[in-house]
């Protein structure tokens, strides 16, 4: 009797719980890689559910694991990128240039580089991001080029980690104007181009 309960009830129950939980975890870890329920703009993607009480059960768990303590869209828009403009994964062994122009319809913007564990990566100059205050614009313009590389660059250098890994870029737009969050799929965002394998 006990053997039957174990074999035909407790075992499939445990197995189902483990497989169900595992499937949920797998889906959550696809954050930033899946196109489902995301707004796409070139290499960048975002979700309006981050930091919102309207989040679904899935959205809330995803944000808790991958973007804990995010804020609502009126406060911050978070655009993430794990791929360059040709759709290839951004990897630390390669070099990239991020070409863009100052984003004036937000109070503050920054582009931060994270490792595959979603934490800041060690580098020789302790620089982890670029923003409107630190980026050097091209002369007499609001345009910029940020070099993402493990090799030192003369200006606008955003260092890659030495350890080979996939890279996660996060563009934050604080206090965006409506012209931004009502046109997330069409506003002009920086382009991420690979320049060296």
């Amino acid at each position: 009797m006990i053997k039957n309960i174990l074999l035909f009830f407790l075992f499939p129950l445990s197995l189902g719980l483990v497989v169900g939980s595992g499937w949920a975890y797998y889906q959550i870890k696809q954050f930033g890689k899946s196109k489902d329920q995301q707004i796409l703009n070139g290499s960048w993607q975002t979700s309006l559910e981050i930091g919102s009480e309207r989040e679904t059960l899935f959205g809330r768990a995803t944000v808790a694991l991958n973007a804990l303590f995010g804020l609502s869209k009126e406060e911050v828009i978070y655009f993430t990128a794990t791929r360059d403009h040709e759709g290839n994964l951004i990897e630390s062994q390669s070099e990239y240039v991020i070409e863009g122009q100052n984003i004036e319809n937000a109070r503050y913007w920054s582009i931060t580089l994270y490792g595959e564990d979603l934490f800041l990566v060690p580098n020789s100059i302790q620089r982890f991001n670029m923003n409107a205050a630190t980026v050097v614009f091209e002369k007499d313009t609001q345009k910029f080029q940020i070099y993402v590389s493990a090799q030192k660059k003369e200006k606008n250098w955003l260092p890659m980690p030495q350890k080979p890994q996939s890279i996660y870029l996060l563009l934050r737009l604080y206090n965006p104007q409506k012209s931004i969050y009502e046109h997330l799929d069409s506003i002009r965002l920086p382009i991420i181009k690979k320049i060296k394998n």
Partner: peptide
């Protein structure tokens, strides 16, 4: 008994899935 095995398994699947999502945060 085999049917019971699969019934319990397939009922436990969504339970595990949604419980995980609920309790993770």
């Amino acid at each position: 008994k085999i049917s019971l095995f699969f019934i319990v398994f397939f009922l436990a699947l969504p339970l595990g899935y949604y419980s995980f999502l609920y309790f993770l945060p």
